[in-house]
Amino acid sequence: MQEHRMASAPDAEQELARRLTEDAASRKNFLRMVGGVAGVGALAGFVAACGGEQTTTTPPPPADTAVSTEEEPEPEEISKGDIEILNYALTLEFLEAKFYADVIESGEITDKALAKTAKLFGDEEQEHVEVLIDTIKSAGGKPAKDPKGNFEEVIAGGPEMILTAAAVVENLGAAAYLGQATRIKSPEVLAAALSIHSVEARHAAALNTAAGFGFANGEPLQGSIPDGPFAVGMDMAAVLEAVAPYLPKKS
């Protein structure tokens, strides 16, 4: 038995690698999965279906916070608070997407590998923008407008300043999502936010490395993993203050 498992390890690796690389993420791939089978729909079904069970296994919630535990074919409403968080995330994604677009357009990044990474990350931020807009709309909310970030000063500073700013912005993005995770009420919105959060973390780590914050000459790695084993979130006020320099000057 054990030997069989040993022998099967590479297959399992391949299978997982395939799942992780092929099943995940590309927008086209997602779009092909349109239809009644959407997992979030199934989740809502579960949650609703389990309503009756809840009354027998857990005490009923306090009256003023309670959602009725019977006769509830309707899914949970996405709360105003969740829509607000989604719009906050959207604002940050707009800024990130604009940042990469402006940087690429400037032609300041001449290193080929880095330019490729900037294009990839920029495309991914754009996908986040589109998905957040769709999510907000389908939850009955009104998507925030693009704040039209202004990155002229950063870009004028040349490649080094651009890389540093990219790392800063991505680390902020990761911290911003983490800061909201426990505030999100809908499990569906939470799942969506988390699926973006870890991508922002990947971006941040890659850019920290590229910006020279870690790995070179046996330096400690706090650049790529700046908070140590436990990442620290930031609240909205702190994040908005940090991105303020990139917002267009009010005239």
Binding site: D23, M33, A38, V40, A42, A191
Partner: peptide, 8 residues
């Protein structure tokens, strides 16, 4: 949201 179908 179709794009999130896989983030189920």
């Amino acid at each position: 949201v179709p794009a999130l179908a896989d983030v189920q």
